[in-house]
Amino acid sequence: MNVYLKQKIAFSVLFLCTLLVIVPVLVILAIIFVKGMSAIDISFLTEVPIKGMKEGGIFPAILGTLYLVLGAVLFAVPLGVLSAIYLVEYSRENFLSRLVKLAIVNLAGVPSVVYGLFGLGIFVLYFEFGASILSGSLTLGIMILPVIITASREALESVPKSFRIVSLSLGASKWQTIRHSVLPHALPGILTGTILGLGRAAGETAPILFTVAAFYLPKLPTSIFDQTMALPYHLYVISTQVPGIPENVRYGTALVLLLLVLLLNLAAIILRYQFRKRKRW
């Protein structure tokens, strides 16, 4: 066969495979958008559900998900970034540090329902936080911890070694070097990890199933020890557990969850772009 023909075939196959990747994404988006758009209006977004969720809005679930994501990020980002700094800048390469790194990678592979059970055991029952925003946030936080640590580690390792050496040669202490010469340049990468974690925390159902999510709670949480509704679980409930929910409400809820995650990501991406614009090397 002609070399050029082979070349063309190879190119076409590779291109088609790449194209196939975006098809499911577009179809999912299209179906949800078309079927759910009609449900979305101001009252759907701002009112509490009534009549066994058959009418009213989904505001408590939106707010609940926002609280949970915020809580998870508040817990996991400082913890994750600080431990990444320790692993990259301070710990020496030895058996223990390799074990820790291996553990982090494996933590990322644990199924989310296992996190849910873990959260139930530790936070809900042992620490007696009950089914609450606190328990749910901590559970989600632990779930996204490996993502944040791994991304932060990679971001820190990608900061040129010369920055550290120059900083030390100017008489900076190790901590000043990390604080002023390393961390600012690693921030965009750390934010990327946060974005990934954020999306995951907003969308997961299993970890919040036992730790926070309420089946039907038509009022807003007033403290972090309250239960709350949350979008992913609410979607599961109205799709499978309660008969007679209009289809456009179910798809509308999915659309809101999708838009919420996109919005959170967008905010983080803009923030990251601002940092990148300032720091270049």
């Binding site: 050496i165 900083s167 900076a172 002023h180």
Partner: peptide, 29 residues
């Protein structure tokens, strides 16, 4: 010691900061 004994390296290695911030880096520290 390192304040008394400064060092210039093989490759020019300014920080990816403004000229001013490069110069004040040591002072701030």
């Amino acid at each position: 010691l390192r304040k008394e004994v400064g060092m210039v390296f093989q490759r020019p290695n300014p920080f990816p900061l403004s000229i001013r911030d490069n110069l004040t880096f040591g002072l701030e520290i």
